[in-house]
């Protein structure tokens, strides 16, 4: 296994590895591990953090005892009156929104990233094209919020200073309130996310494509395979491991998405995602118990994807 990577010949003291690890272990314990346990502890307590969460149970409603905050985090947004309303309210909740984000943003970034990677490989202005697509990665979320204001702005006058509504009214349509219409605003925000993250996917996928030996492709061309077939039956299977990594990495990123929503709608108009809900509970409603319970739910949701990523890394190590 991977343990054999270290040359046996390199003798060392028992302490040496830990000396090298010490600075990293110390800061990570303080800044990540300690807050994580603190969070788990607080999620079982009431809003002031002094009493058990069970005291906040209402007499007539359902109660999960010490896990009361989790009941709130998981079920408060759900309307249980009928199966239809359960589905509807779930789909409109922060969890539903996060699922929309994952479905659309991951397919959007990976799909477009792959497309640009494929196309730019065949042109001479490859570097320029890639730089343009990648550029938004260097822009802050606050800045991106300002940038997209001039795309989504909704004006009540004839003149629109938002690009999209200007096009719509120019074609004779009515302006659309992109950011304040529930449902639609999540799509509008996801578009911003795709704009920012496509460059990331493109770069990694492009490198994977370039590492595919050209002889294989040439050979299939000679055999008369169409470009479409070459793509689906040769390229995609070869770079599949990379695609999986990109997808899981993006899923982790998207689950933690916060800034775009925070900057552009503040989580209003039903555009809230899980991380925003946590922030709102903690800092707007000052309910640390509920906020931390939402945080724990979020961590639990991310863990499986992290495990996939780490497992793949170890497989790679083993192959070496």
């Amino acid at each position: 296994m991977a343990e054999t990577v270290v040359p046996k010949i390199m003798k060392q003291g028992k302490v040496t590895p830990w000396l090298y690890l010490a600075p990293a272990l110390i800061v990570m314990t303080i800044f990540i591990v300690y807050p994580m346990f603190n969070t788990i502890g607080l999620s079982l307590r009431d809003k002031s953090g002094t009493a058990s969460a069970a005291v906040t149970c209402s007499e007539d409603g359902p109660c999960w005892g010490i896990f009361e905050n989790y009941r709130y985090a998981l079920t408060d947004e759900i309307d249980p009156s009928s199966p239809a309303t359960i589905w509807q309210s779930f789909w409109a909740s922060s969890y539903g929104n996060n699922i929309k984000w994952i479905l659309l943003m991951v397919t959007g970034t990976v799909g477009l990233g792959l497309l640009v990677a494929l196309l730019s490989d065949r042109v001479r202005y490859e570097a320029l094209a890639k730089a343009l697509i990648f550029m938004p990665m260097a822009i802050s979320f606050v800045g991106a919020g300002v940038i997209w204001k001039f795309v989504y702005d909704y004006g009540t006058q004839q003149v629109q200073i938002g690009l999209l509504n200007s096009i719509l009214t120019g074609l004779g349509g009515k302006p659309v309130a992109w950011l304040s219409t529930p449902g639609l605003n999540t799509l509008a925000l996801i578009l911003v996310g795709v704009w920012i993250w496509t460059g990331f996917c493109m770069t990694i996928l492009s490198a994977a494509l370039k590492s595919v030996p050209s002889e294989i492709i040439e050979a299939s061309r000679v055999d008369g395979a169409s470009e479409w077939r070459i793509f689906w039956q040769i390229l995609v299977p070869i770079i599949m491991p990379t695609i999986v990594v990109v997808i899981t990495t993006m899923v982790i990123n998207v689950l933690k998405v916060f800034d775009i929503v925070y900057v552009m709608t503040g989580g209003n108009y039903g555009s809230e995602v899980i991380a925003n809900r946590m922030y709102t509970e903690m800092y707007k409603n000052f309910h640390s118990g509920r906020g931390t319970a939402v945080a724990v739910v979020l961590i639990v949701a991310i863990v499986p994807f992290m495990i996939i990523n780490i497992r793949r890394f170890r497989e790679q190590e083993a192959m070496r």
Binding site: S180, T181, N268, Y269, G270, K284, H287
Partner: peptide, 18 residues
């Protein structure tokens, strides 16, 4: 009113108009 009533009130208005 403490404890996030302000934002609950705003949300009610926004949701109602929506």
């Amino acid at each position: 009113i403490p404890g996030g009533f302000g934002s609950a009130e705003w949300k009610a208005i926004v949701d109602y108009l929506n």
